[in-house]
Amino acid sequence: MTMDRIRRDFRKHWLVYLMALPVVAFYLIFCYLPMWGALIAFVDFKPRLGLFGSPFVGLKHFVDFVTGLYFWRVVRNTLMLNLWGLAIGFPAPIVLALMLNEVRNRVFKRSIQTLTYLPYFISLVVVCGIIINFTASDGLVNHIVAAFGGKRVALLGEASLFRPIYTLSGVWQGIGWSSIIYLAALASIDPELYEAARMDGAGRFRQMRHVTLPGISSTIGILLILTVGGMMNHGYEKVILLYNPLTYETADIISSYVYRRGLVDFDFSFSTAIGLMTAVLNFILLYSTNRLSRSHSDVGIW
Protein backbone atom coordinates (compact mmCIF):
# COMPACT_ATOMS: atom_id res chain seq x y z
CA MET A 1 0.00 0.00 0.00
CA THR A 2 2.58 2.58 1.09
CA MET A 3 5.17 1.20 -1.29
CA ASP A 4 2.56 1.58 -3.93
CA ARG A 5 1.98 5.20 -3.00
CA ILE A 6 5.68 5.94 -3.08
CA ARG A 7 6.03 4.29 -6.45
CA ARG A 8 3.12 6.29 -7.85
CA ASP A 9 4.52 9.52 -6.38
CA PHE A 10 7.92 8.87 -7.93
CA ARG A 11 6.38 8.06 -11.31
CA LYS A 12 4.27 11.21 -11.26
CA HIS A 13 6.97 13.55 -9.96
CA TRP A 14 10.13 11.94 -11.27
CA LEU A 15 11.29 15.22 -12.75
CA VAL A 16 10.88 17.03 -9.43
CA TYR A 17 12.88 14.33 -7.68
CA LEU A 18 15.52 14.62 -10.36
CA MET A 19 15.69 18.34 -9.63
CA ALA A 20 15.91 17.59 -5.92
CA LEU A 21 18.88 15.30 -6.48
CA PRO A 22 21.69 17.92 -6.59
CA VAL A 23 20.11 19.80 -3.71
CA VAL A 24 19.77 16.76 -1.48
CA ALA A 25 23.27 15.68 -2.50
CA PHE A 26 24.63 19.08 -1.47
CA TYR A 27 23.07 18.86 1.98
CA LEU A 28 24.11 15.23 2.47
CA ILE A 29 27.70 15.89 1.46
CA PHE A 30 28.43 19.30 2.92
CA CYS A 31 26.14 19.34 5.95
CA TYR A 32 25.53 15.75 7.01
CA LEU A 33 28.89 14.15 6.18
CA PRO A 34 30.67 16.61 8.51
CA MET A 35 28.29 15.50 11.29
CA TRP A 36 29.57 11.97 10.72
CA GLY A 37 33.10 13.35 10.48
CA ALA A 38 32.65 14.94 13.90
CA LEU A 39 33.13 11.46 15.35
CA ILE A 40 36.86 12.17 15.20
CA ALA A 41 36.19 14.00 18.48
CA PHE A 42 36.24 10.58 20.14
CA VAL A 43 39.55 9.38 18.72
CA ASP A 44 43.09 10.69 18.48
CA PHE A 45 42.70 11.47 14.82
CA LYS A 46 45.61 10.95 12.47
CA PRO A 47 44.67 11.75 8.86
CA ARG A 48 46.98 8.93 7.77
CA LEU A 49 45.05 6.35 9.80
CA GLY A 50 41.51 7.58 9.13
CA LEU A 51 38.59 7.66 11.55
CA PHE A 52 38.56 3.94 12.35
CA GLY A 53 42.30 3.46 12.31
CA SER A 54 42.98 6.18 14.86
CA PRO A 55 43.06 5.12 18.52
CA PHE A 56 39.72 5.49 20.33
CA VAL A 57 39.96 7.78 23.36
CA GLY A 58 36.31 8.24 24.34
CA LEU A 59 35.62 11.53 26.06
CA LYS A 60 39.26 12.43 26.65
CA HIS A 61 39.19 15.57 24.51
CA PHE A 62 35.97 16.81 26.08
CA VAL A 63 37.41 16.33 29.56
CA ASP A 64 40.66 17.98 28.51
CA PHE A 65 38.74 21.00 27.27
CA VAL A 66 36.46 21.39 30.28
CA THR A 67 39.32 20.98 32.76
CA GLY A 68 41.74 22.93 30.58
CA LEU A 69 43.38 26.26 31.20
CA TYR A 70 41.26 28.21 28.73
CA PHE A 71 37.81 26.72 29.31
CA TRP A 72 36.45 29.46 31.54
CA ARG A 73 38.10 32.18 29.56
CA VAL A 74 36.51 31.24 26.25
CA VAL A 75 33.11 30.45 27.78
CA ARG A 76 33.09 33.73 29.70
CA ASN A 77 34.21 35.71 26.67
CA THR A 78 31.58 34.11 24.46
CA LEU A 79 28.84 34.93 26.96
CA MET A 80 30.10 38.46 27.56
CA LEU A 81 30.39 39.29 23.89
CA ASN A 82 26.82 38.07 23.43
CA LEU A 83 25.57 40.03 26.42
CA TRP A 84 27.13 43.19 25.00
CA GLY A 85 25.41 42.40 21.75
CA LEU A 86 22.07 41.79 23.45
CA ALA A 87 22.31 44.95 25.54
CA ILE A 88 23.48 47.32 22.81
CA GLY A 89 23.44 45.66 19.41
CA PHE A 90 19.98 44.15 19.69
CA PRO A 91 17.90 47.19 20.71
CA ALA A 92 19.77 49.68 18.49
CA PRO A 93 17.98 48.79 15.22
CA ILE A 94 14.62 48.70 17.03
CA VAL A 95 15.18 52.24 18.25
CA LEU A 96 16.25 53.35 14.78
CA ALA A 97 13.14 51.77 13.24
CA LEU A 98 10.88 53.48 15.78
CA MET A 99 12.55 56.82 15.08
CA LEU A 100 12.32 56.37 11.31
CA ASN A 101 8.70 55.41 11.69
CA GLU A 102 7.92 58.85 13.09
CA VAL A 103 9.47 60.67 10.14
CA ARG A 104 6.78 62.10 7.84
CA ASN A 105 9.01 63.44 5.06
CA ARG A 106 9.50 60.54 2.65
CA VAL A 107 12.61 61.89 0.95
CA PHE A 108 14.32 62.50 4.28
CA LYS A 109 13.35 59.05 5.47
CA ARG A 110 14.56 57.31 2.33
CA SER A 111 17.88 59.21 2.37
CA ILE A 112 18.55 58.22 5.95
CA GLN A 113 17.73 54.61 5.17
CA THR A 114 20.01 54.53 2.13
CA LEU A 115 22.94 56.00 4.04
CA THR A 116 22.57 53.87 7.17
CA TYR A 117 22.33 50.62 5.15
CA LEU A 118 25.58 51.39 3.39
CA PRO A 119 28.12 50.10 5.95
CA TYR A 120 26.45 46.68 5.82
CA PHE A 121 27.81 46.10 2.31
CA ILE A 122 31.41 46.89 3.13
CA SER A 123 33.33 43.66 3.48
CA LEU A 124 34.28 42.47 6.93
CA VAL A 125 37.98 42.61 6.07
CA VAL A 126 37.67 46.26 5.09
CA VAL A 127 35.54 47.11 8.12
CA CYS A 128 38.14 45.57 10.40
CA GLY A 129 40.87 47.36 8.46
CA ILE A 130 39.08 50.64 9.13
CA ILE A 131 38.62 49.76 12.81
CA ILE A 132 42.32 48.92 13.16
CA ASN A 133 43.23 52.18 11.44
CA PHE A 134 40.89 54.35 13.52
CA THR A 135 41.86 52.81 16.83
CA ALA A 136 45.63 52.95 16.28
CA SER A 137 47.54 55.25 18.61
CA ASP A 138 47.85 57.79 15.79
CA GLY A 139 44.34 57.10 14.50
CA LEU A 140 41.16 59.14 14.39
CA VAL A 141 39.73 58.05 17.75
CA ASN A 142 42.98 58.92 19.50
CA HIS A 143 43.10 62.34 17.81
CA ILE A 144 39.74 63.05 19.38
CA VAL A 145 40.78 61.63 22.75
CA ALA A 146 43.96 63.71 22.65
CA ALA A 147 42.03 66.85 21.72
CA PHE A 148 40.13 66.45 24.99
CA GLY A 149 43.36 66.04 26.90
CA GLY A 150 43.33 62.24 27.07
CA LYS A 151 46.30 59.94 26.63
CA ARG A 152 46.97 58.18 23.32
CA VAL A 153 46.60 54.40 23.56
CA ALA A 154 46.62 51.64 20.96
CA LEU A 155 43.00 50.77 21.65
CA LEU A 156 43.02 47.28 20.18
CA GLY A 157 45.92 46.38 22.43
CA GLU A 158 43.78 46.96 25.52
CA ALA A 159 41.90 43.87 26.66
CA SER A 160 39.35 46.03 28.49
CA LEU A 161 38.35 47.80 25.29
CA PHE A 162 37.84 44.82 22.98
CA ARG A 163 34.16 44.25 23.79
CA PRO A 164 33.07 47.88 23.36
CA ILE A 165 35.04 48.22 20.10
CA TYR A 166 33.63 44.95 18.78
CA THR A 167 30.06 45.78 19.77
CA LEU A 168 29.96 49.42 18.70
CA SER A 169 31.55 48.70 15.33
CA GLY A 170 28.92 45.99 14.92
CA VAL A 171 26.18 48.53 15.63
CA TRP A 172 27.78 50.88 13.13
CA GLN A 173 27.78 48.23 10.43
CA GLY A 174 24.45 46.62 11.13
CA ILE A 175 22.04 49.14 12.63
CA GLY A 176 20.51 50.30 9.36
CA TRP A 177 20.25 46.92 7.76
CA SER A 178 18.80 45.21 10.83
CA SER A 179 16.20 47.95 11.19
CA ILE A 180 14.57 46.92 7.88
CA ILE A 181 12.84 43.90 9.33
CA TYR A 182 11.32 46.04 12.09
CA LEU A 183 10.24 48.67 9.58
CA ALA A 184 8.49 45.88 7.67
CA ALA A 185 6.68 44.85 10.86
CA LEU A 186 5.80 48.49 11.63
CA ALA A 187 4.38 48.99 8.15
CA SER A 188 1.98 46.10 8.68
CA ILE A 189 0.33 47.61 11.77
CA ASP A 190 -3.27 48.58 11.07
CA PRO A 191 -3.50 52.42 10.99
CA GLU A 192 -6.98 52.18 12.52
CA LEU A 193 -5.40 51.06 15.77
CA TYR A 194 -3.56 54.38 15.98
CA GLU A 195 -6.77 56.19 15.11
CA ALA A 196 -8.61 54.43 17.92
CA ALA A 197 -5.80 55.11 20.39
CA ARG A 198 -5.81 58.78 19.46
CA MET A 199 -9.57 58.92 19.96
CA ASP A 200 -8.99 57.57 23.45
CA GLY A 201 -6.63 60.49 24.03
CA ALA A 202 -3.38 58.51 23.89
CA GLY A 203 -0.33 60.70 23.23
CA ARG A 204 2.63 59.77 21.07
CA PHE A 205 4.46 57.74 23.68
CA ARG A 206 1.37 55.94 24.91
CA GLN A 207 0.56 55.03 21.31
CA MET A 208 4.07 53.69 21.02
CA ARG A 209 3.66 51.60 24.13
CA HIS A 210 0.17 50.27 23.44
CA VAL A 211 0.05 50.00 19.66
CA THR A 212 3.52 50.10 18.12
CA LEU A 213 5.42 47.85 20.51
CA PRO A 214 2.72 45.14 20.64
CA GLY A 215 2.62 45.33 16.85
CA ILE A 216 6.29 44.43 16.46
CA SER A 217 6.65 42.28 19.56
CA SER A 218 6.46 38.98 17.68
CA THR A 219 9.21 40.10 15.31
CA ILE A 220 11.32 41.14 18.28
CA GLY A 221 10.54 37.82 19.92
CA ILE A 222 11.60 35.70 16.96
CA LEU A 223 14.85 37.62 16.52
CA LEU A 224 15.50 37.39 20.25
CA ILE A 225 15.06 33.62 20.19
CA LEU A 226 17.43 33.34 17.25
CA THR A 227 19.98 35.60 18.96
CA VAL A 228 19.86 33.90 22.36
CA GLY A 229 19.62 30.48 20.73
CA GLY A 230 22.68 31.23 18.64
CA MET A 231 24.83 32.51 21.50
CA MET A 232 27.27 29.64 21.69
CA ASN A 233 27.63 29.68 17.93
CA HIS A 234 28.91 33.23 17.87
CA GLY A 235 30.94 33.62 14.67
CA TYR A 236 34.71 33.86 14.68
CA GLU A 237 35.43 35.81 11.50
CA LYS A 238 35.37 39.28 13.00
CA VAL A 239 37.07 38.14 16.19
CA ILE A 240 40.06 36.61 14.42
CA LEU A 241 40.45 39.72 12.30
CA LEU A 242 40.49 42.01 15.34
CA TYR A 243 42.06 40.13 18.22
CA ASN A 244 45.72 39.63 19.05
CA PRO A 245 47.56 37.87 21.88
CA LEU A 246 47.31 41.06 23.95
CA THR A 247 43.53 40.88 23.96
CA TYR A 248 42.93 37.10 24.09
CA GLU A 249 41.97 37.57 27.72
CA THR A 250 38.66 39.18 26.67
CA ALA A 251 38.51 38.51 22.94
CA ASP A 252 39.13 34.80 22.51
CA ILE A 253 35.73 33.13 22.23
CA ILE A 254 34.82 29.47 21.79
CA SER A 255 34.67 29.57 18.00
CA SER A 256 37.93 31.49 17.59
CA TYR A 257 39.57 28.99 19.96
CA VAL A 258 38.19 26.13 17.87
CA TYR A 259 39.64 27.79 14.78
CA ARG A 260 43.05 28.36 16.32
CA ARG A 261 43.41 24.92 17.86
CA GLY A 262 42.13 23.23 14.72
CA LEU A 263 43.42 25.14 11.74
CA VAL A 264 46.47 26.87 13.19
CA ASP A 265 47.73 24.18 15.60
CA PHE A 266 46.18 21.26 13.62
CA ASP A 267 44.85 19.68 16.78
CA PHE A 268 41.93 18.19 14.81
CA SER A 269 40.28 15.93 17.38
CA PHE A 270 40.48 18.36 20.27
CA SER A 271 39.10 21.20 18.19
CA THR A 272 36.29 19.02 16.82
CA ALA A 273 35.34 17.97 20.35
CA ILE A 274 34.92 21.60 21.41
CA GLY A 275 32.94 22.35 18.27
CA LEU A 276 30.68 19.34 18.75
CA MET A 277 30.07 20.16 22.39
CA THR A 278 29.07 23.73 21.60
CA ALA A 279 26.87 22.63 18.70
CA VAL A 280 24.94 20.29 20.98
CA LEU A 281 24.74 22.90 23.77
CA ASN A 282 23.60 25.45 21.26
CA PHE A 283 20.89 23.21 19.92
CA ILE A 284 19.62 22.62 23.45
CA LEU A 285 19.77 26.36 24.16
CA LEU A 286 17.80 27.19 21.02
CA TYR A 287 15.27 24.47 21.72
CA SER A 288 14.67 25.56 25.31
CA THR A 289 14.53 29.26 24.45
CA ASN A 290 11.90 28.45 21.87
CA ARG A 291 10.01 26.23 24.35
CA LEU A 292 10.14 28.92 27.02
CA SER A 293 8.88 31.55 24.60
CA ARG A 294 6.12 29.26 23.33
CA SER A 295 4.85 28.57 26.82
CA HIS A 296 4.69 32.27 27.74
CA SER A 297 3.53 33.68 24.44
CA ASP A 298 2.63 32.59 20.94
CA VAL A 299 6.03 33.47 19.59
CA GLY A 300 8.31 30.72 18.38
CA ILE A 301 10.44 29.77 15.43
CA TRP A 302 8.74 26.39 15.09
Binding site: C31, L33, G37, A38, I40, G262, F283
Partner: peptide
Protein backbone atom coordinates in the same frame (compact mmCIF):
# COMPACT_ATOMS: atom_id res chain seq x y z
CA UNK B 1 20.45 24.61 13.77
CA UNK B 2 23.07 21.90 13.92
CA UNK B 3 26.30 21.18 12.10
CA UNK B 4 29.40 19.05 12.31
CA UNK B 5 31.70 22.00 12.87
CA UNK B 6 34.65 23.69 11.28
CA UNK B 7 37.22 20.90 11.35
CA UNK B 8 35.13 18.05 9.92
CA UNK B 9 34.03 20.47 7.18
CA UNK B 10 37.64 21.36 6.46
Amino acid sequence: FFGGGLIPFF
